[in-house]
């Protein structure tokens, strides 16, 4: 039942993603990507990850706001067509090879609905589920993992978020180079 529902949602996402990439109007493309994000959030809710679903929803809203900030003030001159990287056909052929090669790996995974932790009894997750409450005192095992067992991940994640936002401030600063005295430093003239 839930498999069919998630498959349908995934097909919807694939369609929306294709629309987002192929739409010439940038604003519509951003809205389509918003649809993909919201459906991802619904999928999280369906497979027993409510915390992630709410986080995804909040981040999705922020994403849309940031992306609209990038597109709305600028003229929406349509930029059609694709990049001539090696030529479009060669690139798509390479992507297809990658896809077919990867497909074999994806078919070897355990069946959907039977996670790998049931196959490996001494996997880390089983320990978290069994001893998590006893050892950390948190009823939510997810909280026990991100704040205690794997707290370094959270620390590093905050560093990355800080680097991203602080970097965005640095990139957006008004005057970035000192006034040059004699000649243009970066354009060597003859």
């Amino acid at each position: 039942m839930i498999e069919a529902l998630i498959s349908m949602l995934l097909v919807f996402m694939i369609i929306a993603a294709t629309i987002a990439l192929e739409m010439t109007d940038l604003l519509s493309a951003v809205i389509s990507i918003g649809a993909v994000g919201i459906v991802v959030s619904i999928c999280f809710l369906l497979v027993g990850a409510p915390d992630i679903a709410s986080t995804q929803l909040v981040v999705e809203v922020l994403t849309i706001v940031i992306l609209i900030r990038a597109t709305i003030r600028h003229d929406l001159v349509t930029i059609d067509g694709d990049r001539e990287f090696f030529g479009l056909t060669v690139t798509i052929a390479l992507l297809l090879v990658f896809f077919i090669f990867g497909l074999k790996a994806f078919w070897n995974l355990p069946e959907f609905g039977v996670p790998a932790i049931s196959e490996f009894p001494d996997a880390a997750s089983n320990h978290y589920l069994l001893k998590g409450f006893e050892e950390t005192g948190s009823r939510n095992i997810l909280a026990a993992i991100i704040f205690d067992y794997r707290g370094v991940d959270t620390f590093a994640q905050l560093c990355a978020l800080f680097a991203g936002i602080w970097g965005a401030f640095a990139i957006m600063r008004v005057q970035s180079k000192k006034k040059k005295k004699k000649e243009d430093l970066y354009h060597d003239k003859k």
């Binding site: 794997r150 370094v152 991940d153 590093a156 680097a163 965005a168 990139i171 180079k177 970066y186």
Partner: peptide
Amino acid sequence: TGDIFNLFIFLEVALIASYTLVGFGCSSR
């Protein structure tokens, strides 16, 4: 680090900071 996901995040920390440092002059190039 001895944990692959932790490795991935630290790698991202270093890379995100270096993306900005490469473009620190903010000229078009």
